[in-house]
């Protein structure tokens, strides 16, 4: 990454971003991405740190059932719910985005956090040549303007890795859409202080870092 790019994205180093660690893998790349843009962040499963953080990132890869069990075991459900309702900027990524909805079809049906209304469905392409998991770049069509999209062109490509997709119960929660496996799914969802991406901004090159920088600058209002 070029120096000049790093400088343009450099934001004021002030308050803490809590990256919630619930043993759902690979948070290092999320931390590195935030550090790259000069944001102070901590990977944590400590409810008091999460409760006092300036903003909260809820990432995750893996399966919904295991993720929900881990959240319960680590006693994180309440503090995540509080964060989502607190008005503090809240960013879901990948599995984190899925399990903020009500329910997932994964693991024989999993009850999720219900921070936004909707469910998580499995891709079921008719074409046998269509590969699942959806693993790679795809375009995101901006459905609704949002501070997260500042400086990001409509149709920009982000990096996806998933076999299930978010399906909010109301269109008003859909901020961005992507086409894959015969469906047009909600690749960015949000409401009030919550935004959540099915793709991995931390693995999406410069455009992804731009999105993370937008999140760090965002006041949680839209």
């Amino acid at each position: 990454m070029s120096e000049s790019f790093t400088e343009t994205l450099h934001i004021n180093r002030h308050r803490l971003i809590a990256i919630i660690d619930y043993k759902a893998g690979n948070l290092t790349s999320v931390r590195l991405a935030f550090e790259h843009i000069g944001a102070e962040c901590a990977i944590t499963s400590d409810p008091t740190v999460i409760a006092s953080a300036d903003r909260v990132v809820f990432p995750g890869v893996g399966a919904a059932g295991e993720a929900m069990r881990n959240l319960q075991r680590l006693g994180l459900v309440d503090v995540i719910r509080q964060a989502a309702q607190s008005g503090r900027p809240f960013l879901g990524i990948c599995l984190g985005t899925q399990i903020i909805l009500d329910h997932s079809q994964e693991d024989g049906g999993t009850k999720c956090l219900g921070l936004l209304p909707g469910e998580v469905r499995r891709f079921a392409p008719a074409d046998p040549e269509c590969k699942i998991p959806h693993m790679g770049w795809n375009a995101v069509r901006i459905v609704k303007p949002h501070p997260l999209f500042e400086g990001i062109e409509d149709g920009s490509e982000f990096y996806f890795v998933h076999s299930y997709y978010p399906a909010p119960s109301d269109e008003k929660y859909i901020l961005g859409e992507t086409d894959y496996a015969d469906v047009r799914f909600a690749s960015v969802i949000g409401h009030a202080n919550i935004v959540a991406t099915q793709f991995h901004p931390e693995r999406s090159g410069r455009i992804g870092l731009r999105m993370l920088a937008n999140f760090v600058r965002w006041d949680g209002k839209c």
Partner: peptide, 8 residues
Amino acid sequence: TVERINVP
């Protein structure tokens, strides 16, 4: 390597 790249 991971520290210097932003793709998987």
